[in-house]
Nucleic acid binder design. Structure first.
Lengths: 84, 84
DNA sequence: TTTAAAAATAGCACTTGTGCTATAATATTT
DNA sequence: AAATATTATAGCACAAGTGCTATTTTTAAA
């Protein structure tokens, strides 16, 4: 089916940084070839949370990103390796 | 005066990462030689917020850290340059 | 195309991050 | 030591992150 109506859902702040973070995360996840579900499981987060971060619906906490970095088996530096 | 009673204030999760982040932040701030107040002003955050992060009372959001990185004039990578 | 897997949304409850304002404690300077 | 600057706490209101559960939409596979 097609999208009934575009859900407005406001963007978080003006932060382009969160958009870049989402891209970086998807990128790393692809490289490691693991699904959002798998990542969520490894990071002990929920699937919705992972999806919300990758779709820039929320502004995640540092703890959450630390868990994700560990789950992706990369350093925090690598996760935040993008220019804002 | 001395400290009347030690306020219990629970630590955020188990995250050693937040402790390291606080250290890193203090470190960078010292190098740049700016006070918490100055940093708060530059990052458009409150002084209490900066203090709470450096004393590991809270688990900051990514947006907040992006603002701090910009205010410190360093890359996000540099802010998160520590091993968890 | 049909089926199955993966990703994106949604709503609710609850916790917690943040701003604001004020005060206390500590460190630095004179 | 006294004065000043810096850092650490506190409490309240409000916004927002997270878990949970379920559904819809999109993508990949057969």
């Amino acid at each position: 089916m097609k999208k009934a109506n575009t859900k407005p859902r406001k963007l978080i702040f003006e932060e382009e940084g969160l958009i870049l973070l989402a891209k970086r995360m998807k990128e790393l996840r692809k490289v490691k070839n693991i699904s959002q579900e798998e990542l969520a499981h490894r990071a002990e987060l929920t699937l919705s949370q992972v999806a919300r971060i990758e779709t820039v619906k929320i502004n995640p906490t540092v703890s959450t990103m630390i868990r994700i970095a560990k789950a992706l088996d990369v350093s925090l530096k690598e996760v935040f390796d993008f220019e804002v």
